[in-house]
Structure formats: structure tokens, C-alpha cells
Nucleic acid binder design. Structure first.
Lengths: 196, 196
DNA sequence: CACTACATGTAACTAGTTACATGATTCG
DNA sequence: CGAATCATGTAACTAGTTACATGTAGTG
């Protein structure tokens, strides 16, 4: 269950409440790993029981409490070990490729429209990933700043580059997929003269 | 649940038993959609109850029966409708990107090794997808031949190109990801002189 | 007769989705 | 005082994973 690793990775930058983490993973900024609110709270409690994180209760007003979680040494070990362990590839299961696989049975115009929406999504995802990559390279994002504040300044550039590279990958894949879809649109409607 | 659509898509080419479908989706040829045996049999029964497929019991020897499923008209409608319906993008949840996001906390050599295995996997996946794409273009694969046998010969070339294009996409994404990982390896170990 | 392929299932589990539910605090 | 935001949960469900379980038929 990689949600645990995702949570550890974020909490390593800065201790946060469940609510903060929900904003991070449920909202638009759940960049590399998305998760709904209903998954996060139970996971946090299981992680606390497992000793990976420690919760600290803070008073916010007379009646409202929030629990701020931070990564324990055991949690850091757990994360580091996972990080350095090659994983087996997840099964390929891509809805849009599955659709495209049978586009010969579909109305070409409707199939084009399916790809059109896909292209818009992928282009948008690529732009957002590239924008975030650039912000990381400039060390402008709040979370990266918090991370770097506890690291040797000599490492800052390398860390920023490594983080940025992930979003570069996200963008590159999205661009590749968008281009694939554009080629598909051409194939769908291409009226080529029968070959000799 | 797209497994249903995947099953309909395969059964459209040729009626098959659960066992045949298990070979197709569980084994190495589960190209675009992978699924384990334990998921396929129950799904087939649910689809039969829903009227999407019809099972025909065949005797294989005195005591062994197999059920051969074929797509019903309702199943074909269901598939076609889904095919022409744009889907919302699945949440991004990529383990290797999540690992890479925190490679600054890992031993560079171990992180390199994680990427190395990933590169080998992606290159292999790309090669296999490209080989399959080529077989499809030559109309050499058994399933495509069965499909084409019930289609107007004038359509054959277009159908083969559309199917092949899906595997082209699979390959392109795998190549992109492999290249990303290679760039990551370079970043991990790059000893650059501090900039002026 | 042993081995492989054929053929079909179940049980227990983990992960993820969708929807509902409740109340506190802050700001305008 | 109303709205947005803070804050935390639960219930019911679907999808997917891992492992176990059973027996038949064909081939050498």
C-alpha cells in the first residue's frame, strides 16, 4: 500500500494534520499520488498504531482539536527501505487504450471526440506538471522550502533537481500520450486511396 | 469496471471459454488489460446474468464440460456505447514516480539500481509491444484473423492499423518512461562543479 | 502411470470509491 | 448571522490480489 509511503514522504517535509494531508492528496495538488479523504484518516490511524508516525494533539479554540502527525524514526526507516527496493511492475490497465483497441467498432466521429477530450486532459496535465517542475527548480514551492530548511545547503540544488525530474517524467508521459491520441485521430478519419 | 469491456472486446473476436480468457488476460498476452483467474470466472457469471454474454455448455469427454461464452446483442451495444463515451481520467498513482520523488533520501547507488530494473522492464515492455504491433500490421495474430474473417475485406487494413496503433502507444509510453529513468540515473550520480 | 494441459471454482484479504455525517472556528 | 474553511470521521460498496482447492483429459 503506497499511500503510506506517500504520506510518509509528505510528512517528512513538515508535520501535518489529517486535514492538511487531505488538501494535499485529495485536491488538485495530489500530484504523484491521489487519495480521497475517506482513505487518509483511517490510514493515518493505522500508521500511528504501527509506529510509523506520531500524532500530537493541538488545541484550536476551546472545543476543536487537531492531531498533527510527524514521522518517527521507524517511519523514516520504513520509507527509506521502500525507496531503495525495486518493485514489480503494476499490471497494465489503461481504460483509454482499451477503448482505442476497439475503435474499429465505433463511430469514427465519436471515437475522435473521445480522443479529443483525452488530448485536452493530457495537455493540461503536462502543462501543470511542467509548471510545477519549474517552480521546484526555482525552489519556490512551500513544501520544498520546508524540506530544504533542514538540509545542508550544498545539497539543495541536487534535491530540487531530483524532485523536478519526477514532474518532468509526468509531463513527458502526458505529452507522449497526447501525441499518441492525435495520431489516433488521424488514423480514424484518414481516407487513404487503396494501395496498388 | 473495465474488465467487462475487456472481456467483451475479446469475445467479440471469437467465443471462448473461461479458461481461454484466463490464458488471455492472466498470462503474458494480457496486453492492454491484465486480470487474474479469480476475477474472471465470477465476472463472466455476472455478465451472463446481466445478459451481456451467453454461455453455451460443451462436452469435452464424458465428465468434463466447458462453457463457451459469446457476446449477445445487448453486450455488443454495451461495449459500443462505452467505447464512444469519454471517461474521466483515472487518478495518478505511480509507484516508481513516488519512489523517485524521494530519491534524495536514498542511497544513490540503490536508487540507481531501482531505476535500472525499471529501465529493463520498460525496454522489454516496449519491445514486446512493438513486436505485437508489427504482427498486427501483417495481420498475423490468430485473434485478429478471426476478427477480420467476419468483416468486409475493404476494412481490414484500417482495422489492423487501429489495433496496431494501440500497441504503438504502449511502446511509446514505455520508451518515454525508460528514457526518463535513464535521465534520473544521470541526475543521481552527476557530480557537477558548483556553478559560478 | 506420471505429467501437462484443460477446466472451474472459492475464501480471505487489501485497496480504493462514493456518499453520508457532524460539528467548530473564522471572517466579512 | 451566514458562508467558507477547519477538522474528523463512518458505511456501504466495487475492484483487485493472493492463495487455496478440485477434478478431467490427453500424451508419452
Amino acid at each position: 500500500m503506497s499511500l503510506q509511503h506517500a504520506l510518509l514522504g509528505v510528512l517528512e517535509a513538515r508535520p501535518m494534520s489529517g486535514y492538511d494531508l487531505v488538501q494535499f492528496f485529495d485536491g488538485s495538488s495530489g500530484w504523484v499520488w491521489e487519495a480521497p479523504q475517506s482513505q487518509i484518516y483511517p490510514t493515518l490511524r493505522r500508521m500511528e498504531q504501527a509506529g510509523l508516525i506520531a500524532g500530537d494533539d493541538e488545541q484550536r479554540g476551546p472545543r476543536l482539536t487537531r492531531t498533527v502527525y510527524s514521522v518517527t524514526d521507524a517511519g523514516l526507516d520504513h520509507l527509506r527501505t521502500w525507496l531503495e527496493t525495486p518493485g514489480k511492475p503494476p499490471p497494465t490497465r489503461d481504460p483509454v487504450l482499451l477503448q482505442a483497441l476497439h475503435f474499429d467498432m465505433a463511430d469514427p466521429e465519436r471515437a475522435r471526440a473521445v480522443l479529443e477530450q483525452f488530448i485536452v486532459e493530457q495537455d493540461k496535465a503536462a502543462e501543470e506538471a511542467e509548471a510545477h517542475r519549474d517552480r521546484l527548480l526555482l525552489k519556490e514551492t512551500p513544501l520544498l522550502r520546508e524540506r530544504l530548511s533542514r538540509r545542508d545547503p550544498g545539497e539543495h540544488e541536487r534535491i530540487a533537481r531530483l524532485k523536478a525530474h519526477v514532474f518532468d517524467g509526468l509531463a513527458a508521459v502526458a505529452r507522449t500520450r497526447a501525441q499518441w491520441a492525435r495520431d489516433g485521430q488521424r488514423l480514424l478519419t484518414d481516407e487513404r486511396p487503396p494501395e496498388a
